[in-house]
């Protein structure tokens, strides 16, 4: 392994869909406590990167390491159990269940109790459910049907589902997509403070540069499946190549 200190390391990862090279030899190391932004234009391969490393489909070649262990190609449930949580670009919750049940299912997974036929599920883990709801600002929505929540609240619920698993590494695919500008910043600051509070390492993708620069400690730029640039936000912003392919000529200064 290239980087012994890394919590998470990807080595030469490639993914081919028919004729499309969605990921091309991506190598990346993420240190504990980092808030890593993976950015790039539409179709750059950001979601494919997340899907490949979380076992939704295997890579065409390359390897993934977590806490020094090779985890390439392991199924999602196995990765969740060793501390990798994620959210999806298209919000993925249990729409027909109540908000509370959404978290109870997640906690059942966390506690490996999905096989028990005792006790009644409905009353399980209520203190922890309330804690998680408070954490993401969804207090008092517990009995609502999850599918009836606003888009932003559904995103927050999905974050709470991921947090219920007590991950060490949290992968967020466009955590603020579809939110109003104001809500976006509030959301990403919430992620930032939760990460510090809970000692999480976060990798997120994002299109809104204000959101990226608000919290990212390191930025990786993907372009046509390959890593175009990587570095601290100020350095990445200054790179001409990055400005050309992604940020556009006029990059508005962010406070």
């Amino acid at each position: 392994m290239a980087n012994a200190d890394a919590l998470f390391h990807v080595d030469g990862l490639s993914k081919q869909f028919g004729g499309v090279q969605a990921l091309a030899n991506v190598t990346m190391s993420v240190a504990p406590g980092e808030l890593r932004a993976v950015i790039g234009p539409n179709g750059a391969g950001k979601s494919t990167f997340f899907n490949t490393i979380t076992g939704l489909f295997p890579p065409t070649s390359g390897n993934v390491f977590f806490q020094g262990e090779r985890i390439t190609g392991q199924p999602p449930h196995a990765l969740a159990r060793i501390g990798i949580g994620r959210t999806f670009q298209i919000t993925s919750i249990f729409r027909e269940l109540t908000v509370r049940e959404n978290l109870q299912v997640a906690l059942t997974g966390r506690e490996r109790r999905s096989w028990s036929i005792w006790p009644k599920a409905r009353t399980m883990n209520m203190p922890r459910v309330r804690e998680l709801l408070a954490l993401v600002g969804l207090t008092d929505t517990g009995t609502r049907i999850a599918g009836t929540l606003s888009h932003g609240d559904q995103k927050r619920l999905e974050l709470a589902i991921a947090l219920a698993g007590q991950p060490r590494l949290l992968l967020l695919d466009e955590p603020t997509a579809g939110m109003a500008a104001q809500e976006r910043l509030a959301s990403i600051h919430l992620v930032g403070s939760l990460a510090r509070e809970l000692g999480l390492t976060v990798i997120f993708t994002e299109h809104d540069m204000a959101v990226v620069f608000a919290v990212a400690t390191v930025i990786t730029v993907l372009h046509q499946g390959a890593v175009l640039a990587e570095g601290i936000p100020a350095a990445v912003r200054a790179m001409p190549a990055v400005q050309q392919v992604y940020l556009g000529e006029a990059v508005a200064p962010v406070e």
């Binding site: 449930h77 159990r81 249990f94 049940e101 096989w115």
Partner: peptide, 25 residues
């Protein structure tokens, strides 16, 4: 009505999410 049953109802609508909370669907 057990945790198993709730898991079952969760995977009815969204098996992928169930996988990603650490449960083998």
């Amino acid at each position: 009505h057990s945790p198993f049953g709730m898991t079952l109802q969760a995977l009815r609508g969204n098996p992928r999410r169930v996988e990603y909370v650490g449960i083998n669907v």
